[in-house]
């Protein structure tokens, strides 16, 4: 049972954060396509902007992977995880999952707005890139807590 909770934790981290990124990249992608239809030469710049909300999914993957590797699933012989430890791991995975979902969506919206800046003033690329990066800070902070918790949990 403990193992189930632990895997659920990894799953939560991956699917919530991944869903956040997917929504965010989707939102930004719609704005990016609009700009490229008008001016294909801005493709590289808007592509970078579109990718910015993609990092939450990666952070989720990161936590999921560390979790799986800690409980020994990747090596083939899973550790004996008690229910308490399993729940601990689940709790540790929550920050990046939840914050990843929300920040991914909002970073996507901010990116879409930033793409609007690039459409009108391509030379302001540096600033346009900064606004979505602000949102990402909170994903990073939650990632930090998730990683620190998971590496601190003693298994078995």
């Amino acid at each position: 049972m403990g193992l189930v909770y632990a895997i659920l934790g990894a799953a939560v981290a991956v699917f919530l954060a991944g869903a956040g990124s997917a929504i965010g990249v989707g939102i930004a992608g719609q704005a990016a396509s609009g700009v490229v239809t008008e001016d294909p030469s801005k493709f590289a710049k808007v592509l970078i902007m579109q990718l910015l909300p993609g990092t939450q999914g990666i952070y989720g993957l990161l936590v999921g992977f560390i979790t799986l590797s800690n409980i020994g699933l990747l090596g083939g012989n899973a550790a004996d995880v008690s229910v308490t430890v399993g729940l601990e791991i689940l709790a540790a995975c929550l920050p990046i999952g939840v914050v990843g979902l929300i920040s991914g969506i909002y970073q996507g919206k901010t990116s879409a707005a930033g793409i609007g800046i690039i459409a009108r003033k391509p030379d302001q690329f540096g600033k346009a890139m900064l606004f979505p990066a602000m949102v990402e800070t909170y994903a990073i902070l939650s990632l930090l807590i998730s990683i620190l918790s998971i590496t601190a949990i003693k298994i078995g």
């Binding site: 990161l62 990073i140 990683i147």
Partner: peptide
């Protein structure tokens, strides 16, 4: 100051995704 924790997060991200790929 806390913002600099991204140094850790991004550094780890590179390494962990790379090991996922290798695996």
């Amino acid at each position: 100051l806390l913002s600099y924790s991204r140094l850790l997060a991004l550094g780890l991200a590179t390494g962990v995704i790379a090991s996922v790929i290798n695996q």
